[in-house]
């Protein structure tokens, strides 16, 4: 089944780069959000969203807060979430994993890394 991505980043450039990378690896369905709050609204309004790719540092509601809010809703308990961020400290990665992101990419990334992480998430059976 084709995935529909919710791409969350406050940088227009980064959203475009993520979208271009997704297109390059064969994905076609996307929704964009400029911050965590916008993402939550779009997620609640669109049941066809099947994958979230989110930045961490964003105004209003951060990517980490978005992950926590999404996971707090039983409906989205198994929704795949990939964090794509500049934050590469061990504590950051651990905190994101504790918040239940499925995988983690440190910017700058390549489309190959993006593909690899998406495939890993999809291939991992839901607990």
């Amino acid at each position: 089944m084709a995935l529909k991505f919710l791409v969350v980043d406050d940088s227009v450039t980064m959203r475009r780069i993520v979208l271009n990378s997704l297109k390059q690896i064969g994905h076609e369905a996307f929704v964009e959000a400029a911050d965590g709050r916008d993402a939550l609204n779009k997620l609640q309004a669109d049941d066809s969203i099947s994958f979230i790719i989110t930045d961490w540092n964003m105004p209003d509601l951060t990517g980490l807060d978005l992950v926590k809010a999404v996971r707090a809703n039983p409906k989205y308990e198994t929704l795949p979430i990939l964090m794509v961020t500049t934050r590469g400290m061990k504590e950051d990665i651990v905190e994101a994993l504790q918040a239940k992101v499925n995988n983690y990419i440190v910017k700058p990334f390549t489309p190959q890394v993006l593909r690899e992480k998406i495939e890993q998430i999809i291939a991992t059976p839901v607990a």
């Binding site: 406050d10 961490w56 105004p59 590469g88 400290m89 990665i93 990419i105 440190v106 700058p108 890394v113």
Partner: peptide
Amino acid sequence: SSDLAFNPEARYDKNHETQAFADLLVAEN
């Protein structure tokens, strides 16, 4: 700008060591 969120530690580093470290933590998790 109050709506600008940033990471003060942001680095443009293409050596992918940080990604390898993140992969290790994800695998360990």
